[in-house]
Write a protein that binds this DNA or RNA. Structure first.
Lengths: 222, 222
DNA sequence: ATATATTATTAGACGCATCTAAGTTTTTAT
DNA sequence: ATAAAAACTTAGATGCGTCTAATAATATAT
């Protein structure tokens, strides 16, 4: 139950999230993401390496150790449980919860998050469809299919988002798209990769970049 | 809406709470309460004075300015709203909430605390009977009467506590005493100041120190 | 293959919040 | 009224997390 500073927790969490699709995080990329200068990140990597949280060698890319992944997972768990709590219990919109969760994820109180978990019925996903790590910090990372990989005629259900920035979430709100929304693919436009879809009784056009950031599955009973 | 560090917030809050019955807080007392050394506190007082949050002159006792009181009130508001939320919404025991609220009081999110306030129906007291400051940081500090000031034959209702340390709260739990508990004073023992009371159908003996830390009012309809 | 650009590291500084050691002021006790 | 004790301040150091400036290593381009 080792405790790390707020700051170290942010490095670990960010490193974890960046490693999901990259596996090879550079000092520069991490500095960009955290809004810090490279020397700051270098020196923190030396400290995290001393704590055995990252594997770090001069001029080489950074990797989380198993210990580091676990710690990161526990923070992400607190973040995502909090987001779920804010939406389900406190009735915030899914576009409002990130900044609050960003702060509450650093609260040190196992019983507090245990209670959240119980009240929510042990959820496995957050309000944006991202998986909630288990109590040991382990993430069950399911394979996710972007909407643009599906084909015309298919009926799909939205299960997750690649980004949760609030401008994207507000855009989806305006389009009435959320987790669980069922869309029928009318056609895919070859030229620009946009998709024409049926959403209930209405028709909808989504651009390629948007379709890449929506994850979907074939709708049940299709 | 000036933002202060976590650390400064703790100084302000502590100073406020200590000023309620003392009005004259010394560097030494504040250092004791915060678990810090005197020079640390001296140097912070110089900074808070520069921020116009306290009135401080060398070798003189410390006073919060109006600005300081307001800031402190807003932190105490967040603390007490949180305690209320933890008890009423999340169903924690009143002895469990202090440490969690101690952390959540530093969350910077007006909308988060606004939502709590709404969900709780704009409560005026926390789970220990302490007043919740209003949105401007103002505390309506009602006069409070310790149980030991009442007389035999009187029927009183418990309305607050002088201390909220969890050993005291657990003691009260064992005695089945909480806010709203009605007690009939059978007799006051002259020798040691203890009180014999009727609590429902059972009889109860409370020592003088306990009676000094329970606030009460004459029960309605008596 | 070498020059250039990019990325990363080292060295040294700074602000914050803390400490210890030493000295000063105020209070208390005799 | 003076000595002793307690409270307080100053000076200077430390750790954390950040920065800038200078230097070194790696990657890119011609």
């Amino acid at each position: 139950m080792s405790l790390h500073s707020h700051t170290k927790e942010n490095y670990l969490k960010t490193l974890y999230l960046m490693s999901i699709d990259k596996d090879n995080v550079s000092i520069n990329e991490l500095a960009q993401k955290l809004g810090l200068k490279m020397p700051t990140v270098t020196s923190m990597m030396q400290k995290l390496a001393a704590d055995r949280l990252v594997k770090y060698e001069k001029y080489k890319p950074i990797h989380l150790t198993e210990k580091g992944k676990k710690e990161a997972g526990l923070i992400i768990r607190k973040h995502r449980l909090t987001e779920m709590f804010l939406v389900e219990v406190m009735k915030f919109g899914w576009e409002e919860v990130h900044d609050i969760a960003e702060q509450i994820e650093h609260i040190n109180s196992p019983v507090f998050f245990k209670k959240m978990d119980e009240m929510l019925g042990f959820p496995e996903h957050d309000p944006h469809g991202s998986p909630i790590p288990d109590r040991t910090g382990n993430i069950k990372q399911a394979v996710r299919h972007p909407l643009c990989d599906f084909n015309s005629g298919e009926s799909v259900v939205i299960t997750g988002l690649a980004r949760s920035e609030d401008d994207f979430l507000k855009f989806l709100n305006r389009k009435n798209i959320g987790l669980g929304t069922i869309l029928n693919i009318i056609e895919k436009e070859e030229y620009d990769g946009s998709m024409r879809l049926k959403h209930g009784k209405r028709e909808l056009l989504l651009s390629r970049p948007v379709c890449e950031e929506l994850f979907a599955e074939i709708a049940a009973g299709t």
